[in-house]
């Protein structure tokens, strides 16, 4: 019985090439699939739960879908004049613009550190790299008070600016530039009269592109997931990213349970773009932390 289950999953062409010692193992496959089911569970739940209205959420069987998904989306859209979609746009802005700027800043710095010899290089690199180990907690609160002094708290800048510099991004950019941009190519371009910044944009950037995608994705997910910084920086809920917005909505839900169906639908809609982006780009997620190299 176990054997038939497994062989049904195995492609016939592949089964022929597999040697007897490497026959498929039911146990290994099952353990991994249980892990996968555990990871899917909350996502499957939210798919069903978002089809229910406020009352059904508490009364009906979880895995029986209802018909209120569209009503919930309409209600969510109408909630305080489309505030939810404003949160989604804000999140896209924070994560998209932030990650893009971060990638540019990291790749420039990484290129300079990898391809130039200059006094103070080792110090600059060490200090920037030490930033990897700095816990966010000792940054967020003083960042708030420093930005408050120049009147930037409760603005888009308060969330964007602190997340542009990424020590880990600079580190990856340096490692990857060393490995993938040959100094000879730079020398040749220079002999042809190209300036340093032109060499960077036209030659180094295309060669570094797999690492750049990785840096962009890391920063994008990092900013999208960041809760503490916007939670501290923002008071005006029209500037909130989705995480802070839904947290606030859930808080109100404890006194107005009807809001729970909005929270559930909002959670579902908010993970769709990120999950889609993630599935499309998942082949870029091959990061070797131990060796510090990016394989893409």
């Amino acid at each position: 019985m176990a054997a038939t289950l497994v062989s049904a999953r195995t492609r016939p062409s592949r089964a022929i090439t597999v040697s007897p010692r490497e026959r498929s193992s039911f146990f290994s496959t099952a353990v991994l699939l249980i892990g996968a089911l555990y990871c899917l569970l909350p996502i499957v739940w939210v798919l069903f739960a978002s089809t229910k209205d406020g009352g059904e959420l508490f009364t009906t069987n979880t895995f029986v879908p209802s018909t209120h998904l569209w009503d919930n989306i309409v209600e969510l859209t109408q909630y305080r004049g489309g505030l939810y979609w404003r949160w989604m746009l804000n999140t896209a802005l924070y994560a998209g613009v932030g990650a893009l700027l971060s990638t540019v800043v990291s790749s420039l710095a990484g290129f300079a550190l990898a391809k130039y010899e200059f006094k103070g290089k080792a110090t600059v690199f060490t200090v920037l790299l030490a930033g990897v180990l700095v816990p966010g907690v000792i940054l967020a609160i003083p960042q708030y008070f420093l930005l408050a002094q120049i009147g930037l708290t409760n603005t888009y800048w308060a969330v964007l600016l602190p997340q542009i510099v990424s020590p880990y991004g600079i580190y990856l950019a340096r490692i990857y530039t060393s490995a993938s941009v040959p100094t000879d190519v730079i020398e040749a371009a220079r002999t042809d009269g190209a300036g340093d910044f032109r060499i960077f944009w036209r030659i180094a950037i295309p060669m570094m592109s797999p690492a750049l995608v990785t840096i962009f994705l890391f920063q994008f997910v990092g900013i999208w997931n960041n809760f503490m910084l916007p939670y501290i920086m923002l008071g005006n809920d029209s500037l909130y990213p989705i995480t802070v917005g839904l947290n606030g909505l859930l808080n109100q839900g404890s006194s107005v349970p009807a809001l729970y169906s909005l929270v559930v639908t909002g959670a579902l809609l908010s993970i769709i773009p990120l999950v889609a982006l993630f599935l499309v780009l998942q082949r870029f997620w091959k990061v070797d932390l131990g060796a510090g190299a990016v394989k893409a």
């Binding site: 195995t10 496959t29 991994l32 990871c39 909350p42 939210v46 997931n225 839904l246 959670a267 999950v275």
Partner: peptide, 28 residues
């Protein structure tokens, strides 16, 4: 392991929660 099947599905699915912000996963 060469003996495990359905690897692509499991790998992507187990990695998927990384794309879900902590606030949303706490909520779910």
């Amino acid at each position: 392991s060469k003996r495990t099947r359905a690897k692509g599905f499991s790998r992507v699915t187990i990695f998927l929660p990384y794309a879900v912000p902590a606030v949303i996963s706490s909520l779910l």
